[in-house]
């Protein structure tokens, strides 16, 4: 929700002046690097959860007593897979943190607009808080913290995307505005519903060992309900997008509905590779399938489902932010 608040604030404080100073190319590049490097970080975080590797390194911020950056690379690359994934997640997270610092510096050195500076600080603050949450998850060995950490990651990714859109100066070079304000409203609604769906999915993924079957069942039903809502919302957005003359709005809207369909297929796949076919007798040819716990394809599908969830939020918020900015053109 903080992301939505930032977008609101950003919009209200933005000065619409065709002749306003364009964003410095390096600020743009760094903002893009920040967003691009966050997506693999989400993948890696997903792998950590899939392989239950969160506690493969019991200390933090160091790694087995070493400073994070001087941990012997041979021990990392040739060591156990869980250690490889967890230490790799930390290294990549540190890189993202460093890029966020560089982004703040560049925003102050190369850009004068308060909004870009605010966004840069927000990115840095969020990534630091996310890092502390990751550390708390390890030091407290708490799955609930892992769940919060897992929910904040996609929110940070969305924030990076918002920042990239703001740095893109879309209002300067885009020749066409928004045909209907409803398009923007649907995009915002899709973003909100997608994020809520992700938090429900996180409840299932980070379920506590003592959770009751009823709680899990409720969460599964909620997850299915929200999946339908995301599909509906994305379909309406795509339909509205077809009427939009601006291809920078139309394309992500159409891409979003495609992503949601892929995500639904991945969700069904995630259930099957975790718990087999729900109704084995209905599909005799598939009912002999035996779930391979921690298998390669199984882990890939599960992690892909999580990463695609983040991507949906990112594309939805990209569409919403572009629409928002162009709606005043």
């Amino acid at each position: 929700m903080s992301v939505a608040a930032t977008v609101l604030e950003a919009h209200s404080s933005f000065e619409v002046e065709p002749g306003a100073t364009p964003t410095h190319p390096w600020v743009k590049r760094i903002a893009r690097l920040l967003a691009i490097s966050t997506f693999p970080l989400i993948w890696l975080g997903g792998l950590v959860t899939t392989y239950d590797a969160g506690m493969a390194v019991p200390d933090w911020p160091g790694t087995y007593g070493y400073n994070l950056f001087v941990y012997p690379w041979q021990a990392w690359l040739y060591g156990p897979f869980d250690l490889f994934v967890e230490h790799g997640h930390r290294l990549l997270a540190s890189f993202v943190g460093l890029v966020a610092i560089v982004f703040v510096i560049s925003a102050y050195r190369l850009d004068t607009r308060p909004l870009i500076r605010r966004l840069a600080w927000l990115c840095l603050g969020t990534v630091i808080f996310q890092g502390i949450l990751g550390g708390a998850r390890v030091l407290m060995d708490a799955r609930t913290v892992a769940m919060i950490h897992g929910c904040l990651g996609p929110a940070f990714f969305a924030l990076c995307v918002v920042t990239v859109v703001h740095c893109s100066d879309i209002r300067r070079w885009s020749e066409v505005g928004v045909w209907s304000r409803w398009f923007v409203r649907f995009a915002v609604a899709t973003t909100i519903v997608s994020y809520l769906q992700l938090t429900i999915g996180a409840q299932l993924r980070h379920i506590l060992p003592g959770a009751s079957p009823k709680f899990f069942m409720t969460m599964v039903h909620l997850h299915l309900t929200f999946a339908a809502m995301v599909l509906l919302s994305a379909t309406i957005l795509a339909a509205a997008g077809l009427r939009e003359p601006n291809r920078y709005l139309r394309r992500p809207a159409l891409m979003l509905v495609g992503l949601v369909i892929v995500q639904i297929v991945l969700g069904i796949g995630t259930w099957i590779v975790n718990y087999a076919l729900p109704w084995a007798d209905l599909a005799p040819d598939l009912s002999a399938y035996i779930v391979q716990a921690k298998g390669y394809w199984e882990s890939l599908i599960i992690t892909m489902h999580q990463a695609t969830g983040s991507l949906i939020i990112a594309v939805a918020i990209l569409t919403a932010t572009r629409g928002w900015l162009l709606s005043t053109k």
Binding site: Y275, A276, A280, S287, A288, Y289, I290, V291, Q292, A293, K294, G295
Partner: peptide, 11 residues
């Protein structure tokens, strides 16, 4: 087979 009990051969 035919149930949700997985194979842990990968472990």
């Amino acid at each position: 087979p035919g149930t949700s009990m997985p194979s842990f051969a990968a472990i």
